[in-house]
Simulated assay, not measured.
Amino acid sequence: MKQEVRKVVARRESAPRSERYPDYQDVPRVMTVLVRDQATGEYNEPHVHRHGQLLYASNGVMRVATERGLWILPPKRALWIPPGMIHDQLMLSAVKMRSIYIEPQVCAGLGDHCKVLEIPGLLRELILALADQPIEYPQEGRNAHIVALILSELQAARTLPIEVPWPVDRRLVTVCEAILQDPGQDHSIGYWADRVGASSRTLIRLFVNETGLNFRHWLQQVRLATAIDRLDKGQSVGVIARDLGYASQSAFSAMFRRVMGESPREFLVRD
């Protein structure tokens, strides 16, 4: 009898960890971590969670979109997604995803809108430590401290202003998708208006009404998000500035400092 019990336990412990969210949504824990590896180009169709979600990849880069925003997430960043927010994901490289799901009554203090958070070394190690535990991990002792520390670190995490607001109007979507494919192009609003069969005045109005930003400010957000991704990949500031259409490295650095509060090099050193 004891031998049979040991065999059952052994089989249970060796069973692969589920990669399906439905297997996590009713787990009686304040916080759980989904562990899943995905290949370049894999796409997770629009979906929604009853939990709050910290969407994080310990390796790789993904693009996340909601109906009204878009974010590019390299490994040192995570996206906070409040409960009930429809979103999708596109893997821009091979990704080791470590998504944290948090019960709604516990995560209210993290906000009701999506935002990009920095993941410093301590928070990263805490996430990976919880990911090493079973889905229904023991709640006392070390694990209780890990969960409490993750919540505390999330509250203190730095928010990065790298959201790219996304429009609904089909003409503006066409323009935004084209720019996203090549952020370094420097066409005027008149050029894009001709491309989509609208007047410049109409396109100017649509940008402000649908994204909350004027055309140049929206373009800057795309370039900033792209730049942070490339800095994380080790590309030089000079190459990034050139590829993103800036007249000089100093012009790019000035924009970066104005928005982020520090130069690209300072950002990398602190990171």
Rank of each mutant, 00 (worst) to 15 (best):
A15M: 14
D132G: 15
L92Y: 08
R223N: 05
Q249N: 10
K233L: 14
K7M: 15
L206P: 02
P138V: 09
M91L: 12
R158Y: 06
A144G: 11
R195C: 08
V30C: 02
R68W: 08
I240W: 07
T211D: 00
L79M: 05
T32E: 04
N209C: 07
H113T: 15
M85Q: 09
S188V: 02
K115Q: 14
R158W: 07
L244C: 05
A227Q: 04
V8F: 10
R270A: 13
P22A: 12
G41V: 09
Q133S: 11
C176R: 01
P74Q: 08
S263C: 08
F207R: 02
Y137P: 02
Y137V: 01
A251I: 08
E125T: 07
R270N: 07
Y137Q: 02
L90Y: 03
P83T: 04
E4L: 14
V222P: 02
Y137L: 02
G52P: 08
E140V: 14
S263W: 04
N44C: 14
Q181R: 13
V239C: 11
V196H: 00
R265A: 11
S99P: 03
I119A: 09
V61F: 08
S14R: 15
W80I: 03
D243L: 09
T211L: 02
H217K: 14
A108C: 09
E163W: 01
